[in-house]
């Protein structure tokens, strides 16, 4: 087990490091002048000496590798830098918003997992039946819909047309505090849209692997023993298919993160996605780089964890490489 962790980290850490170097070089090649960005509108009245002073303070004119090592060292010390688009410490920006993004992604993942397991298993049970065909047509169509477009369509129908749910935000404009019921009401549409846009892959995977395990010997044996259809389906066929499915959830996390950026933007949720778009529009290197790197590290760690859980749960599986 420890060897597996070691080998995984031996690849994950260099990739993370290479990503950070690539991002830093891109940032350095960017035509933005960080000193001018920092000054904002005051740049027009600021003397050249003052700008030079800011540059000297920040070491913008040092050799690139010195700057990179300083940036990396600061990141590792927990000093994420100063956001030029929000004029706040990057750490504070992320701390204030990460929770909402995690909430959105967490609830969505739960909904997608439960929904796709139930629907996929039922579709596999009657292959070629009405539900099966309906599920597959819907999955195929949804796969080609951009999630932000789906979000706008949902707003047009359920927020504007029917008025059932609010069109955006996290709390009612009139409310002063954060009320759980209010937040839940605001999260229904974003979670539904994100879940639906991510569901096809999960749904088709469950359907195919349950359909396959329904043909396996032990499932046939269970059927021959006269066990109830429901017991065979959920107790035997789904159980066989469950383990590989759960590990593959990790590989699909990047898609979920991307989808949450778009959905957060459409619904103006105060999460990391919307703030990184804002940072990108303002070419805010410290904030954007920190969010991208942290997300990358979290996704890599989640992948590592699901792989390890798989090895722990199924002794036949050995991870090589």
């Amino acid at each position: 087990m420890i060897k597996v962790i070691g080998r995984r980290l031996a690849f994950a850490l260099p990739v993370l490091l290479a990503t950070s170097i690539g991002m830093f070089l891109l940032g350095a090649a960017s035509p933005m002048d960080p000193a001018k960005q920092y000054a904002g509108a005051a740049v027009f009245t600021m003397s050249e000496e003052n700008l030079a002073q800011i540059r000297a303070n920040w070491g913008v004119d040092d050799p690139l590798y010195v700057q990179y090592l300083r940036w990396l060292g600061n990141l590792l010390h927990g000093d994420l830098g100063w956001s030029t688009s929000r004029h706040e410490m990057v750490g504070d920006v992320i701390a204030a918003r990460a929770g909402w993004t995690l909430l959105l992604i967490g609830i969505t993942l739960g909904v997608v997992l439960i929904g796709s397991l139930v629907l996929g298993t039922l579709a596999a049970y009657r292959r070629g039946g009405l539900l099966d065909r309906g599920v597959r047509v819907a999955a195929y169509a949804v796969q080609s819909m951009p999630s932000f477009w789906l979000a706008l369509a949902a707003i047009a129908v359920f927020a504007i047309g029917l008025g059932w749910f609010p069109a955006g935000g996290l709390t009612d404009v009139r409310s002063t505090g954060v009320d759980v019921a209010d937040v839940a009401h605001h999260l229904v549409l974003p979670v539904a849209v994100l879940a639906i846009s991510q569901a096809p892959w999960f749904l088709l995977f469950v359907r195919d692997s349950v359909a396959e395990s329904l043909r396996e010997d032990h499932v046939l044996a269970a059927r021959a023993r006269g066990l109830a259809g429901r017991t065979v389906l959920f107790g035997h066929a789904l159980r066989t298919a469950l383990l590989p499915f759960l590990t593959l959830v990790g590989t699909h996390l990047p898609e979920l993160v991307g989808g949450s950026v778009l959905v957060e933007t459409v619904f103006s949720l105060p999460g990391l996605g919307a703030v990184s778009v804002h940072a990108a529009l303002g070419s805010d290197f410290p904030l954007l780089a920190a969010i991208t790197l942290i997300t990358t590290a979290v996704v890599l760690a989640a992948n590592l964890l699901t792989d390890l859980a798989y090895t722990a749960a199924d002794p036949r599986v050995r991870i090589d490489g």
Binding site: F11, A12, L288, G321
Partner: peptide
């Protein structure tokens, strides 16, 4: 081959929309 494939597997675990956003933001 082994190293390149492991690198590819690891890169496929990166959130590519965020990376794409980063690339575009830095290049205007």
């Amino acid at each position: 081959d082994r190293i390149l494939m492991r690198v590819i597997d690891t890169i496929s675990a990166l959130p590519h929309l965020l990376l794409g956003i980063f690339i575009v933001a830095m290049l205007r």
